[in-house]
Computed example of a mutant assay.
Amino acid sequence: MSGRSPQTFEFPAWPQFDETERTGLQRALEQGQWWRIGGSEVDTFEREFAEYHGAPHALAVTNGTHALELALQVLGVGPGTEVIVPAFTFISSSQAAQRLGAVAVPVDVDLDTYCLDPVAVESALTPRTRAIMPVHMAGHFADMDALQKLSADSGVPLIQDAAHAHGARWRGQKVGELGSIAAFSFQNGKLMTAGEGGAVLFPDAEQYEAAFLRHSCGRPRTDRRYFHGTSGSNFRLNEFSASVLRAQLGRLAGQIDTREQRWPLLESLLAEVPGVVPQSRDERNDRNPHYMAMFRVPELGEERRNALVDALVERGLPAFVGFRAIYRSDGFWETCAPDLSVDELARRCPNSEALTRDSIWLHHRTLLGTEQQMHDIASVIAETVAAA
């Protein structure tokens, strides 16, 4: 297997598209209204996306970061409040709260699933906590049983960062059936995409209507005299993006089926590689869309991990380093950071520290490949890790 060229791996391309997207774009073009007020594509996509995820209401927005920001604002997050977020996540999770003037409080994650640790969350609750944001890392649900109980006992609402979790299920329940707000991303690498875009699922009409106002500059649908009912911004999705997302949603289930077949094979193969520990799975997460194929190489260290990823890329794998703990980026400290030092947060978040140093992920299009390609992936990883 040594000496493979980058051309050896011919994984399915991403994004994927066919005549369905072309037809949708033509349909949006010819309807004569290219924004959601007056058009039909965004409205239709919202209904279809909400139904697919078991939610009463969905609101399409400009991107996943705006989806989080809008959802937090609906929950009353702002100056003087705190939002608990995983320390190990993409930084949008914390920045959405910080841009509203709230303090983002990083807490540690579980070292097996890479998702928010409920025990750490409970320790971080204060009278100022206004929301708890579990991130369903790589498509794997956070422990929603424990987090829902904690939310009920404390009165602090959950907001699911479901940017990786399109089509996921927890104990048979879809994301929108869990009774809390959930935010999604349709950025170019996500499980369904229009290049950019986002959506928020709401469990009740009151929250949805409040969000609609704020995502459209505070202006009611029928307003003709510029009576803006609340503050807000322009987070409206356009009709062209919605038409593409309708097509993307139509093939999502089949893609998840394929990834659910491939990951158990790849996971078992990676688990046999000395020094490699794949992301594990809580069996209550009975449908995982696998946004990323994630694994660790413990004790390798960040510098050697980075070199390992470079070597995997040279061998033709779409490999990436894992997220950096959010408090280890300068952007986290620019505004509304907790009154703790980096070292103090690191001591509180040992698992996030480990993942910062040693986690690696492969693009989900690898899991759309063949069974043989899973064996080839594992062989290349084994050879490259041994060389490292």
Rank of each mutant, 00 (worst) to 15 (best):
G155R: 02
E206N: 07
A97N: 10
A354Y: 01
E51K: 13
P12E: 08
L345G: 01
E283V: 15
G155C: 04
Y208A: 12
L237G: 01
I84T: 02
P79I: 02
V74T: 09
E69T: 15
D343N: 02
E41N: 03
G54S: 06
Q26M: 12
S359M: 08
A87P: 00
L317Y: 13
H166F: 07
M137T: 11
N285H: 14
R214N: 03
Y226D: 14
L111D: 11
I256S: 03
C336S: 14
T62H: 10
V107W: 09
G24P: 10
S268G: 11
F295A: 09
A165P: 01
E334K: 14
M292G: 12
A211N: 01
F90G: 14
V109S: 04
E353H: 07
L29R: 06
L266P: 04
L270H: 10
R47G: 07
M137G: 05
T356F: 05
N288R: 02
L111T: 07
V105Q: 15
A387N: 07
E82Q: 15
P106H: 04
T23C: 06
G54K: 06
G76H: 06
E371W: 08
S93K: 03
Q261S: 12
V109W: 05
W361P: 00
S341W: 03
W35G: 03
V135S: 11
H228I: 02
G139M: 04
G232L: 00
D108H: 07
F332M: 03
A311K: 14
T62R: 15
G229W: 12
A386I: 03
E383K: 01
E51V: 07
V273Q: 01
W170V: 03
A307V: 06
V85A: 11
S352L: 13
G78A: 15
Q7W: 12
S233I: 02
N238E: 09
A382N: 04
N238R: 04
E334D: 10
V105F: 13
A168T: 05
Q373C: 04
L312Q: 12
D310L: 12
L355A: 02
A205C: 10
A87M: 05
L312C: 08
W35C: 06
E239L: 11
V321N: 13
F45I: 01
V83W: 04
P79W: 04
A211E: 03
R130D: 02
K190Y: 07
T366H: 00
Q160Y: 13
E41F: 02
P289Q: 06
L269Q: 13
G101F: 06
Q148W: 06
V83T: 03
V83F: 04
R225M: 10
R259H: 10
W35L: 08
E30R: 09
S268L: 04
S92M: 09
L317H: 07
R224C: 05
V380W: 07
E82S: 10
F11H: 05
M144K: 01
Q98T: 00
Q373M: 13
A13I: 06
F202V: 05
D282L: 00
P350V: 05
D18N: 11
E314Q: 15
V109D: 04
S2R: 11
E10A: 14
E344P: 02
L345P: 03
P86W: 09
